[in-house]
Design a protein around this nucleic acid. Sequence first.
DNA 1: TCTCCTATGTCAAAATCCTGACATGGAAGA
DNA 2: TCTTCCATGTCAGGATTTTGACATAGGAGA
Lengths: 153, 153
Amino acid sequence: MEDRKSVAPPHPAHDVTEHVGYRLKRAAAALRGAMDKALRQHGLTVPQYACLELLDEQPGLSNAELARGAFVTRQSMNVVLRGLQDAELISRPATTDHGRALPAHLTAQGRSRLDAARSAVYAIEQQMIEAVPQRRLGALLDDLDGMAAALGG
Amino acid sequence: MEDRKSVAPPHPAHDVTEHVGYRLKRAAAALRGAMDKALRQHGLTVPQYACLELLDEQPGLSNAELARGAFVTRQSMNVVLRGLQDAELISRPATTDHGRALPAHLTAQGRSRLDAARSAVYAIEQQMIEAVPQRRLGALLDDLDGMAAALGG
DNA sequence: TCTCCTATGTCAAAATCCTGACATGGAAGA
DNA sequence: TCTTCCATGTCAGGATTTTGACATAGGAGA
């Protein structure tokens, strides 16, 4: 069933909806939509949640580091951080004695908010995982990483 | 075949960067960035290119249909269509005798622009395809579709 | 030491996208 | 027929994101 690639045509499909990029975009859009909907009930946006999750695992990350981790620009993450600061979900020192990066940390309020939102997000992730045969899950993750790396992600 | 749910750890990884959603987001972000960069040299944005590609395969699509195909809202696609109309890359009748949907079509100029941009985009897609073992490509596409479907995409 | 280079934080402006809303056209069912 | 419902196109407003730019802090090398 998999011998068709033996010829390796540069463009295996004539329909754009058959292309890898299109499928990837569709899956990502579906995930984004589901997360958007789920997180709204917790008063968080997707970038905000991503930021909290990153800070929970790696406390003290700077604005630029968070931006790279969430795949947005420094400027966008800066706006996100301000929103989270205004909501008292994270804390950031106004100055630092060494360097320029300001390390951010979760507040107690931020941690509880994250815990609440996490269950909703993990349920979505579980739906995704159940949609792919278990034996293929590892390969799927590897392939996603490989594609990202091939494109300089 | 689906007996894995008997054990089914709810959260297989303790690191967010190990989650399916994170990998998917990263791959999609890498693709978006690569396409953005490539298409800029052709004077097109990603939604504009997606719109042209859809219209090349299915001439006469309406604004709402294009929006669904490109995973954006009707309003966003409306803006895209106006830009493409101003650039003379597509044409749309001002009125219609039946219904309300206005069918869009590529102009000759739009088709040549699409042809030029397509080679750049296909090169990116080729890079992605080469990053995954050939025998896994079909399964990858199926899994992406499965995940999108599971999330209501 | 001094100079270059990179990284970071931030500001300003524009572009993009979405939410909410409204009016219209068509189809389905009472 | 008529009434209800759904899909479409469009407008207005705001939120989000990006591009471009600038100043500063620290490290590497001459």
